[in-house]
Design a protein around this nucleic acid. Structure first.
Lengths: 167, 167
DNA sequence: CACTATTCCCACCAATCTCATAGGGAAGAT
DNA sequence: ATCTTCCCTATGAGATTGGTGGGAATAGTG
Protein backbone atom coordinates (compact mmCIF):
# COMPACT_ATOMS: atom_id res chain seq x y z
CA UNK A 1 0.00 0.00 0.00
CA UNK A 2 1.15 3.56 -0.67
CA UNK A 3 2.95 5.28 2.13
CA UNK A 4 0.91 8.06 3.71
CA UNK A 5 1.97 11.30 2.11
CA UNK A 6 2.91 13.93 4.60
CA UNK A 7 1.33 17.31 4.03
CA UNK A 8 4.18 19.68 3.32
CA UNK A 9 2.53 22.64 5.04
CA UNK A 10 4.31 25.51 3.39
CA UNK A 11 4.42 28.71 5.33
CA UNK A 12 3.27 31.56 3.14
CA UNK A 13 4.52 34.59 4.97
CA UNK A 14 6.60 36.14 2.26
CA UNK A 15 9.64 38.10 3.34
CA UNK A 16 8.61 40.86 1.00
CA UNK A 17 5.03 41.29 1.94
CA UNK A 18 3.19 44.35 0.68
CA UNK A 19 0.43 44.68 3.27
CA UNK A 20 -3.16 45.61 2.56
CA UNK A 21 -2.44 48.95 4.21
CA UNK A 22 0.30 49.77 1.74
CA UNK A 23 -1.61 48.48 -1.24
CA UNK A 24 -4.67 50.50 -0.26
CA UNK A 25 -2.59 53.59 0.53
CA UNK A 26 -0.90 53.58 -2.86
CA UNK A 27 -4.14 52.99 -4.69
CA UNK A 28 -5.87 55.77 -2.78
CA UNK A 29 -3.00 58.11 -3.54
CA UNK A 30 -3.20 57.15 -7.20
CA UNK A 31 -6.89 57.93 -7.20
CA UNK A 32 -6.09 61.37 -5.83
CA UNK A 33 -3.31 61.82 -8.35
CA UNK A 34 -5.60 60.98 -11.22
CA UNK A 35 -8.34 63.38 -10.14
CA UNK A 36 -8.67 67.01 -11.14
CA UNK A 37 -6.81 68.96 -8.53
CA UNK A 38 -9.28 71.71 -7.74
CA UNK A 39 -11.80 69.83 -5.62
CA UNK A 40 -11.01 67.49 -2.72
CA UNK A 41 -12.06 63.85 -2.98
CA UNK A 42 -14.10 62.15 -0.31
CA UNK A 43 -12.78 59.03 1.41
CA UNK A 44 -16.03 57.30 0.56
CA UNK A 45 -15.55 58.01 -3.14
CA UNK A 46 -12.06 56.55 -3.10
CA UNK A 47 -13.23 53.55 -1.11
CA UNK A 48 -15.93 52.79 -3.62
CA UNK A 49 -13.83 53.39 -6.71
CA UNK A 50 -10.97 51.25 -5.49
CA UNK A 51 -13.03 48.73 -3.52
CA UNK A 52 -11.40 49.42 -0.18
CA UNK A 53 -13.26 49.11 3.16
CA UNK A 54 -14.32 52.64 3.94
CA UNK A 55 -13.46 52.89 7.62
CA UNK A 56 -10.19 51.11 7.12
CA UNK A 57 -9.28 53.56 4.41
CA UNK A 58 -10.13 56.51 6.64
CA UNK A 59 -7.46 55.41 9.08
CA UNK A 60 -4.92 55.05 6.32
CA UNK A 61 -5.70 58.48 4.88
CA UNK A 62 -5.30 59.85 8.37
CA UNK A 63 -1.82 58.36 8.61
CA UNK A 64 -0.96 59.87 5.26
CA UNK A 65 -2.19 63.24 6.44
CA UNK A 66 -0.03 63.00 9.57
CA UNK A 67 2.85 61.99 7.37
CA UNK A 68 2.37 65.07 5.22
CA UNK A 69 1.44 63.24 2.05
CA UNK A 70 -2.14 64.45 1.80
CA UNK A 71 -4.17 67.33 3.12
CA UNK A 72 -7.74 67.14 4.27
CA UNK A 73 -10.75 69.34 4.38
CA UNK A 74 -13.72 68.72 6.64
CA UNK A 75 -17.37 69.47 6.14
CA UNK A 76 -19.63 69.33 3.14
CA UNK A 77 -17.61 69.22 -0.07
CA UNK A 78 -14.61 68.19 1.99
CA UNK A 79 -12.19 65.40 1.26
CA UNK A 80 -8.56 64.78 0.55
CA UNK A 81 -5.94 66.16 -1.81
CA UNK A 82 -2.34 65.27 -2.42
CA UNK A 83 -0.09 67.57 -0.42
CA UNK A 84 2.50 67.72 -3.19
CA UNK A 85 2.60 67.18 -6.92
CA UNK A 86 2.14 63.55 -7.89
CA UNK A 87 5.61 63.58 -9.38
CA UNK A 88 7.07 64.46 -5.99
CA UNK A 89 5.58 61.55 -4.05
CA UNK A 90 7.29 58.20 -4.39
CA UNK A 91 6.00 54.78 -3.50
CA UNK A 92 8.74 54.59 -0.89
CA UNK A 93 7.33 57.74 0.74
CA UNK A 94 3.96 56.10 1.07
CA UNK A 95 5.30 52.80 2.37
CA UNK A 96 7.45 54.48 4.99
CA UNK A 97 4.54 56.61 6.09
CA UNK A 98 1.99 53.89 6.54
CA UNK A 99 4.16 50.85 7.26
CA UNK A 100 7.60 51.87 8.51
CA UNK A 101 11.09 51.13 7.18
CA UNK A 102 11.35 49.43 3.79
CA UNK A 103 13.59 46.59 4.89
CA UNK A 104 14.24 45.01 8.26
CA UNK A 105 15.84 41.82 9.51
CA UNK A 106 14.29 40.34 12.63
CA UNK A 107 12.65 43.67 13.27
CA UNK A 108 15.76 45.86 13.10
CA UNK A 109 17.25 47.79 10.23
CA UNK A 110 20.24 46.10 8.63
CA UNK A 111 22.96 48.48 9.83
CA UNK A 112 22.07 47.61 13.43
CA UNK A 113 22.83 43.93 12.88
CA UNK A 114 26.02 42.11 13.69
CA UNK A 115 26.98 38.68 12.43
CA UNK A 116 29.79 36.39 13.36
CA UNK A 117 31.69 33.49 11.89
CA UNK A 118 30.77 32.31 8.40
CA UNK A 119 27.73 34.61 8.48
CA UNK A 120 29.88 37.74 8.45
CA UNK A 121 29.14 38.50 4.81
CA UNK A 122 25.42 38.21 5.36
CA UNK A 123 25.18 41.85 6.35
CA UNK A 124 26.45 43.24 3.03
CA UNK A 125 23.92 41.00 1.34
CA UNK A 126 21.00 42.48 3.27
CA UNK A 127 22.40 45.95 2.60
CA UNK A 128 22.59 45.26 -1.10
CA UNK A 129 19.07 43.90 -1.07
CA UNK A 130 17.81 46.99 0.63
CA UNK A 131 19.66 49.27 -1.77
CA UNK A 132 18.07 47.42 -4.63
CA UNK A 133 14.58 47.70 -3.22
CA UNK A 134 15.11 51.37 -2.51
CA UNK A 135 16.27 51.98 -6.04
CA UNK A 136 12.92 50.81 -7.32
CA UNK A 137 10.57 52.22 -4.74
CA UNK A 138 12.26 55.59 -4.39
CA UNK A 139 12.52 55.92 -8.14
CA UNK A 140 8.86 55.55 -8.95
CA UNK A 141 6.43 58.40 -8.32
CA UNK A 142 2.66 58.45 -8.30
CA UNK A 143 2.81 60.35 -11.54
CA UNK A 144 4.91 57.63 -13.17
CA UNK A 145 2.27 55.07 -12.28
CA UNK A 146 -0.78 57.16 -13.03
CA UNK A 147 0.57 58.13 -16.45
CA UNK A 148 1.55 54.55 -17.17
CA UNK A 149 5.16 55.60 -17.70
CA UNK A 150 7.40 53.71 -15.31
CA UNK A 151 11.08 54.70 -15.37
CA UNK A 152 12.87 52.76 -18.07
CA UNK A 153 14.86 50.55 -15.72
CA UNK A 154 11.71 49.49 -13.93
CA UNK A 155 9.74 49.07 -17.11
CA UNK A 156 12.48 46.84 -18.51
CA UNK A 157 12.22 44.54 -15.52
CA UNK A 158 8.47 44.28 -15.90
CA UNK A 159 8.71 43.70 -19.64
CA UNK A 160 10.65 40.49 -19.20
CA UNK A 161 8.01 37.76 -19.52
CA UNK A 162 9.97 35.58 -17.10
CA UNK A 163 9.30 38.14 -14.40
CA UNK A 164 5.63 37.22 -14.55
CA UNK A 165 6.17 33.51 -13.88
CA UNK A 166 5.76 32.09 -10.46
CA UNK A 167 8.79 29.99 -9.60
CA UNK B 1 0.78 78.44 24.89
CA UNK B 2 2.18 75.70 22.65
CA UNK B 3 -0.30 73.35 21.04
CA UNK B 4 -0.12 69.81 22.40
CA UNK B 5 2.08 67.79 20.07
CA UNK B 6 0.53 64.60 18.89
CA UNK B 7 2.67 61.48 19.06
CA UNK B 8 3.19 60.26 15.51
CA UNK B 9 3.10 56.53 16.37
CA UNK B 10 5.01 55.01 13.50
CA UNK B 11 4.23 51.44 12.60
CA UNK B 12 7.41 49.42 12.17
CA UNK B 13 6.30 46.37 10.23
CA UNK B 14 8.57 46.65 7.26
CA UNK B 15 7.25 45.40 3.95
CA UNK B 16 10.51 43.59 3.36
CA UNK B 17 10.92 41.81 6.61
CA UNK B 18 13.52 39.08 6.86
CA UNK B 19 12.10 36.97 9.69
CA UNK B 20 14.09 35.37 12.46
CA UNK B 21 13.34 32.02 10.80
CA UNK B 22 15.01 33.06 7.58
CA UNK B 23 17.92 34.77 9.25
CA UNK B 24 18.54 31.71 11.42
CA UNK B 25 18.11 29.32 8.50
CA UNK B 26 20.66 31.12 6.36
CA UNK B 27 23.15 31.36 9.21
CA UNK B 28 22.73 27.68 10.03
CA UNK B 29 23.24 26.76 6.40
CA UNK B 30 26.34 28.93 6.29
CA UNK B 31 27.67 27.13 9.33
CA UNK B 32 27.16 23.84 7.53
CA UNK B 33 28.76 25.23 4.39
CA UNK B 34 31.82 26.34 6.29
CA UNK B 35 32.32 22.99 8.01
CA UNK B 36 34.34 20.07 6.72
CA UNK B 37 31.92 17.91 4.80
CA UNK B 38 32.75 14.43 6.12
CA UNK B 39 31.04 14.54 9.52
CA UNK B 40 27.50 15.76 10.21
CA UNK B 41 27.07 18.76 12.49
CA UNK B 42 24.75 18.66 15.48
CA UNK B 43 21.94 21.17 15.79
CA UNK B 44 23.19 22.03 19.24
CA UNK B 45 26.63 22.94 17.88
CA UNK B 46 25.12 25.25 15.28
CA UNK B 47 22.81 26.79 17.86
CA UNK B 48 25.68 27.60 20.13
CA UNK B 49 28.02 28.86 17.45
CA UNK B 50 25.42 31.15 15.92
CA UNK B 51 23.53 31.98 19.10
CA UNK B 52 20.19 30.60 17.96
CA UNK B 53 17.61 29.04 20.35
CA UNK B 54 18.24 25.34 20.09
CA UNK B 55 14.70 23.99 19.85
CA UNK B 56 13.67 26.72 17.47
CA UNK B 57 16.58 25.87 15.24
CA UNK B 58 15.65 22.20 15.26
CA UNK B 59 12.32 23.04 13.70
CA UNK B 60 13.97 25.16 11.06
CA UNK B 61 16.49 22.46 10.18
CA UNK B 62 13.61 20.06 9.90
CA UNK B 63 11.91 22.32 7.39
CA UNK B 64 15.13 22.51 5.43
CA UNK B 65 15.38 18.74 5.44
CA UNK B 66 11.81 18.42 4.13
CA UNK B 67 12.66 21.00 1.51
CA UNK B 68 15.65 18.96 0.38
CA UNK B 69 18.29 21.49 1.39
CA UNK B 70 19.93 19.44 4.13
CA UNK B 71 20.14 15.79 5.08
CA UNK B 72 20.07 14.49 8.61
CA UNK B 73 21.42 11.58 10.55
CA UNK B 74 19.98 10.45 13.85
CA UNK B 75 21.66 8.88 16.84
CA UNK B 76 25.03 9.39 18.42
CA UNK B 77 27.38 11.16 16.03
CA UNK B 78 24.36 12.31 14.08
CA UNK B 79 23.67 15.78 12.80
CA UNK B 80 23.07 17.69 9.60
CA UNK B 81 24.83 18.14 6.29
CA UNK B 82 24.05 20.25 3.25
CA UNK B 83 22.22 18.15 0.67
CA UNK B 84 24.01 19.86 -2.22
CA UNK B 85 27.21 21.77 -2.76
CA UNK B 86 27.20 25.19 -1.12
CA UNK B 87 27.51 26.77 -4.54
CA UNK B 88 24.25 25.15 -5.60
CA UNK B 89 22.08 26.52 -2.79
CA UNK B 90 20.91 30.10 -3.11
CA UNK B 91 19.51 32.38 -0.47
CA UNK B 92 16.25 32.37 -2.39
CA UNK B 93 16.12 28.57 -2.05
CA UNK B 94 16.35 28.89 1.69
CA UNK B 95 13.82 31.67 1.99
CA UNK B 96 11.28 29.86 -0.15
CA UNK B 97 11.77 26.70 1.86
CA UNK B 98 11.34 28.17 5.31
CA UNK B 99 9.15 31.18 4.64
CA UNK B 100 7.28 30.80 1.36
CA UNK B 101 7.21 33.00 -1.75
CA UNK B 102 9.69 35.85 -1.98
CA UNK B 103 7.17 38.57 -2.67
CA UNK B 104 3.46 38.84 -2.03
CA UNK B 105 0.90 41.61 -2.03
CA UNK B 106 -1.92 41.26 0.49
CA UNK B 107 -1.00 37.61 0.81
CA UNK B 108 -1.13 36.65 -2.86
CA UNK B 109 1.58 36.52 -5.46
CA UNK B 110 1.63 39.49 -7.82
CA UNK B 111 0.39 37.73 -10.97
CA UNK B 112 -2.84 36.85 -9.16
CA UNK B 113 -3.66 40.50 -8.55
CA UNK B 114 -5.91 42.71 -10.60
CA UNK B 115 -6.08 46.46 -10.41
CA UNK B 116 -8.45 48.92 -11.91
CA UNK B 117 -8.53 52.59 -12.79
CA UNK B 118 -5.44 54.68 -12.13
CA UNK B 119 -3.92 51.76 -10.23
CA UNK B 120 -3.61 49.66 -13.37
CA UNK B 121 0.13 50.19 -13.65
CA UNK B 122 0.67 49.15 -10.06
CA UNK B 123 0.92 45.52 -11.07
CA UNK B 124 3.96 45.97 -13.35
CA UNK B 125 5.59 47.84 -10.49
CA UNK B 126 5.18 44.93 -8.08
CA UNK B 127 6.38 42.57 -10.79
CA UNK B 128 9.48 44.67 -11.37
CA UNK B 129 10.11 44.81 -7.66
CA UNK B 130 9.87 41.07 -7.41
CA UNK B 131 12.16 40.56 -10.38
CA UNK B 132 14.68 42.82 -8.75
CA UNK B 133 14.55 40.99 -5.44
CA UNK B 134 14.84 37.68 -7.21
CA UNK B 135 17.86 38.86 -9.13
CA UNK B 136 19.70 39.38 -5.88
CA UNK B 137 18.49 36.46 -3.84
CA UNK B 138 18.65 33.87 -6.60
CA UNK B 139 22.07 35.08 -7.62
CA UNK B 140 23.81 34.62 -4.30
CA UNK B 141 24.80 31.14 -3.10
CA UNK B 142 25.94 29.97 0.29
CA UNK B 143 29.39 29.59 -1.15
CA UNK B 144 29.44 33.21 -2.30
CA UNK B 145 28.69 34.34 1.24
CA UNK B 146 30.91 31.89 3.05
CA UNK B 147 33.86 32.76 0.84
CA UNK B 148 33.18 36.46 1.22
CA UNK B 149 32.86 36.81 -2.55
CA UNK B 150 29.47 38.22 -3.42
CA UNK B 151 28.69 38.49 -7.14
CA UNK B 152 30.02 41.75 -8.51
CA UNK B 153 26.62 43.37 -9.03
CA UNK B 154 25.65 42.67 -5.45
CA UNK B 155 29.02 43.69 -4.07
CA UNK B 156 28.79 46.98 -5.95
CA UNK B 157 25.48 47.77 -4.30
CA UNK B 158 26.90 47.03 -0.87
CA UNK B 159 30.03 49.04 -1.54
CA UNK B 160 28.10 52.25 -1.97
CA UNK B 161 28.38 54.00 1.39
CA UNK B 162 24.94 55.54 0.89
CA UNK B 163 23.46 52.07 1.01
CA UNK B 164 24.42 51.87 4.67
CA UNK B 165 22.56 55.00 5.70
CA UNK B 166 19.18 54.80 7.25
CA UNK B 167 16.86 57.23 5.49
C1' DC C 1 20.87 -6.58 25.05
C1' DA C 2 20.74 -2.05 27.54
C1' DC C 3 22.22 2.69 27.23
C1' DT C 4 22.97 6.98 25.30
C1' DA C 5 22.80 10.48 21.82
C1' DT C 6 20.45 12.80 18.54
C1' DT C 7 16.89 13.79 15.33
C1' DC C 8 11.89 13.95 14.66
C1' DC C 9 7.14 15.04 15.76
C1' DC C 10 3.40 17.20 18.22
C1' DA C 11 1.19 20.21 21.21
C1' DC C 12 1.29 24.37 23.45
C1' DC C 13 2.10 29.39 24.63
C1' DA C 14 2.31 34.65 24.98
C1' DA C 15 2.82 38.63 22.46
C1' DT C 16 2.07 41.04 18.52
C1' DC C 17 0.20 42.20 14.02
C1' DT C 18 -3.37 42.39 10.43
C1' DC C 19 -7.50 43.76 8.79
C1' DA C 20 -10.90 45.30 9.82
C1' DT C 21 -15.84 47.40 12.35
C1' DA C 22 -18.49 50.59 15.39
C1' DG C 23 -19.73 54.85 17.49
C1' DG C 24 -19.46 59.27 18.28
C1' DG C 25 -17.02 63.99 18.49
C1' DA C 26 -15.11 68.11 15.99
C1' DA C 27 -14.98 71.21 12.42
C1' DG C 28 -16.39 73.24 8.34
C1' DA C 29 -20.03 74.46 4.59
C1' DT C 30 -24.60 76.05 3.45
C1' DA D 1 -29.17 75.00 12.64
C1' DT D 2 -28.15 71.35 10.03
C1' DC D 3 -25.75 68.48 7.29
C1' DT D 4 -21.49 66.63 5.77
C1' DT D 5 -17.22 64.99 6.25
C1' DC D 6 -13.11 64.12 8.60
C1' DC D 7 -11.07 62.65 13.15
C1' DC D 8 -10.45 59.77 17.25
C1' DT D 9 -10.86 55.81 20.28
C1' DA D 10 -12.24 51.28 21.37
C1' DT D 11 -13.00 46.61 20.17
C1' DG D 12 -12.19 42.11 18.11
C1' DA D 13 -11.32 37.73 15.54
C1' DG D 14 -7.83 35.38 13.44
C1' DA D 15 -3.15 34.61 11.99
C1' DT D 16 1.75 34.98 12.65
C1' DT D 17 5.99 35.19 15.23
C1' DG D 18 9.23 33.44 18.12
C1' DG D 19 9.59 30.33 21.15
C1' DT D 20 9.37 26.00 24.81
C1' DG D 21 8.61 21.19 26.35
C1' DG D 22 7.78 16.23 26.19
C1' DG D 23 8.39 12.44 24.35
C1' DA D 24 8.90 8.83 20.28
C1' DA D 25 11.94 7.01 16.62
C1' DT D 26 16.50 5.83 15.12
C1' DA D 27 21.33 4.98 15.25
C1' DG D 28 25.71 3.92 17.34
C1' DT D 29 28.37 1.84 21.59
C1' DG D 30 29.68 -1.36 25.58
Amino acid sequence: MPAPVRESTVRDTSPMRISARVDYAVRAALHLAAARQDAPIKAEAIAEAQDIPHKFLEGILNDMRRGGLVTSQRGGNGGYRLARAAGAITVADIIRTVDGPLVSVRGVRPPELSYDGPARTLLPLWIALRANVREILEGVSLEDIASDALPSGVADLADDPAAWDNP
